[in-house]
């Protein structure tokens, strides 16, 4: 009988301890897919991650819902893009009156590129820092440092994980560079549908000649499309990058009118929230880029 009571008390003690440990975990919110992956790589099982919105939404057109506010109330901190790709989240945060909520601006240390497009406003910045290797590393470092300040007991763990993430990103670039060692990237002339790929392309010394969308998320008009086709033909642009998983009705028109070679990049914003999404899809993006550079090299030599 005494032994049974002891076991019961021990079970109650560990259950209480487990509950207390669970209660000590931070609740960290995210607004966009890639940031789930960043935070998951940093915190492992030391914190809970709460997406503000269920996966499957379009960040360009999403309108905040009451349920978003309910989720926000559970968060101790939230990681945001903060430079134009998650304005819906900024509205929810502003409406919440949560003075205690820690907002981690993941892009605060990233030198931002200017937005490109016929109708972008002066001073507009390119918010697609998540489609970039070095910029992703910088953001993970920024997030890890911020979380280490909030949760100093896990500082070494968070920073160590951030460095491991950086190693994975660098390994991707290393593999790509090994394939490009004899190639000259000056042969490739690039157009993109979406003003989203400059951060990645710049790391490989590639400039974007033309962006087809006049502004973020805006399709070109018929006259703008004609101007773009003329530009592509006159500039001898040989590669067009566009977005995977998104309908681009005008891409086929451009291909037929110019003969430009098409390649697709993932924005890492579709499908379930997964820890390895950024690494896996970035690997695919870089592989696509290498293929495009090789195509441009072959075309230059032929």
């Amino acid at each position: 009988m005494l032994i049974k009571v002891c076991f019961f008390l021990i079970a109650v003690f560990y259950a209480s301890f487990g509950q207390a440990s669970e209660n000590k975990k931070l609740n960290i919110g995210i607004a966009l897919h890639p940031y789930y992956s960043y935070v998951a790589n940093i915190v492992g099982d030391k914190a809970n991650i709460i997406p503000l919105v269920d996966h499957g939404f379009n960040p360009h057109a999403y309108q905040p819902q009451p349920n978003d506010m309910l989720r926000l109330q559970k968060m101790d901190a939230i990681v945001v893009n903060g430079i134009g790709h998650d304005d819906f989240a900024m509205k929810v945060i502003a409406s919440s009156a949560r003075e205690d909520l820690i907002v981690i601006n993941a892009n605060q240390d990233v030198p931002l590129l200017a937005a490109m497009g016929a109708s972008v406003g002066q001073g507009a910045k390119n918010p697609h820092t998540f489609v970039g290797l070095s910029t992703s590393i910088q953001k993970v470092y920024t997030i890890a440092r911020a979380l280490a300040e909030i949760d100093p007991d896990n500082q070494a763990y968070y920073l160590g994980n951030a460095r491991q993430f950086a190693k994975q990103m660098r390994a991707i670039k290393r593999q790509a560079m090994a394939e490009l060692v004899q190639l000259d990237t000056r042969h490739i002339k690039v157009a993109t549908t979406h003003n989203a790929y400059n951060y990645l392309l710049q790391e490989f010394g590639i400039e974007v000649a033309t962006v087809i969308e006049p502004a973020h998320g805006v399709e070109p008009s018929a006259s703008q499309l004609k101007t773009t086709i003329d530009n592509i033909n006159q500039s001898h642009i040989n590669v067009l990058f566009y977005e995977l998983d998104m309908p681009n009705r005008f891409v086929d028109t451009i291909e037929q009118a110019t003969g430009v070679q098409l390649y697709r990049f993932s924005h890492m914003t579709h499908g379930p929230y997964e820890k390895d999404k950024v690494v896996q899809e970035m690997k695919q993006n870089v592989s696509t880029l290498v293929e495009a550079i090789k195509f441009a090299e072959r075309q230059a030599k032929s």
Binding site: S134, Q138, Y141, R163, Q202
Partner: peptide, 24 residues
């Protein structure tokens, strides 16, 4: 940093992350 060209900004990002790697 806003006055830098795109290529210079890419270089700056690499140097910034390298500085953090050095400190870690």
């Amino acid at each position: 940093s806003s006055q830098l060209s795109n290529g210079q900004k890419a270089l700056l990002t690499e140097l910034n992350t390298a500085a953090q790697d050095i400190q870690m």
